[in-house]
Design a protein around this nucleic acid. Structure first.
Lengths: 113, 113
DNA sequence: CCGGAGGTTCGAAGGTTCTCGTACCTAACG
DNA sequence: CGTTAGGTACGAGAACCTTCGAACCTCCGG
């Protein structure tokens, strides 16, 4: 576990379990979020900027799941919270996984032609 | 759905959902089975040949989940049942996923250095 | 200083998952 | 023919997941 000012606690990447990761990615809402982050530039993003059609408290729940599955880092800035993918760390531990899931999701949502 | 003599019904690969696949692979027992199949030669294998430390009826449950997630094809031969990975079909629909998960699992279970 | 936007915590409802034991079925073996 | 190995169907329990609303907190803007 790490802890910085405003940083919510996250597991060491070495302690992250593949089962937890796959479970986290199995949920459509969470996968949508991760997909957006993977497609982004790696910069921090406001949690409120994701258009999820669910209640606030449910969102809090999903962020926790993603955090505990080692996928994201989350910073608490008083009034708002911000997330960032743990890109490099995650790729070092689970090489190719994010890319493959992202590619599959993109291919699946576009016309196949 | 297809149905051959003795073949249990399975979904069309086009109908298989990524969420269902990830959920199926999230379970350690099921992932172990898939891993063995991926590492195998693609030949059919007796369901009873997997050393799962769980009750018979629980095993039946897990085979159903794997079938419905599009991962395996299952044949009923009267006294025994046999499974085969839907390798080619699955890879066409979800390119790289099985390989990545397999590689990660192998790397994770072996000493790193 | 008040209101609103963004979030967390808590408790609860509803659904799903994993597990098992029991009962039952079918083929193969002796 | 009886037994055994391998399986399924069913029912049940425990745990977990997703969801929500209500209550509460904390900043920022006016």
């Amino acid at each position: 576990m790490s802890s910085m000012p405003g940083e919510l606690p996250i597991p060491e990447m070495a302690d992250v379990d593949l089962g937890a990761v796959l479970s986290a990615l199995a949920d459509p809402h969470r996968r949508a979020v991760v997909l957006e982050l993977v497609g982004g530039d790696g910069a921090e993003r406001a949690c409120s900027s994701f258009p999820l059609p669910i209640a606030k408290s449910t969102r809090t729940h999903h962020w926790r799941v993603l955090r505990e599955a080692g996928l994201v880092r989350q910073r608490d800035a008083g009034n708002g919270t911000f997330v960032r993918l743990r890109r490099d760390e995650f790729d070092a531990r689970f090489p190719g996984l994010l890319d493959v899931v992202a590619e599959i999701s993109i291919a699946g949502s576009a016309p196949v032609r």
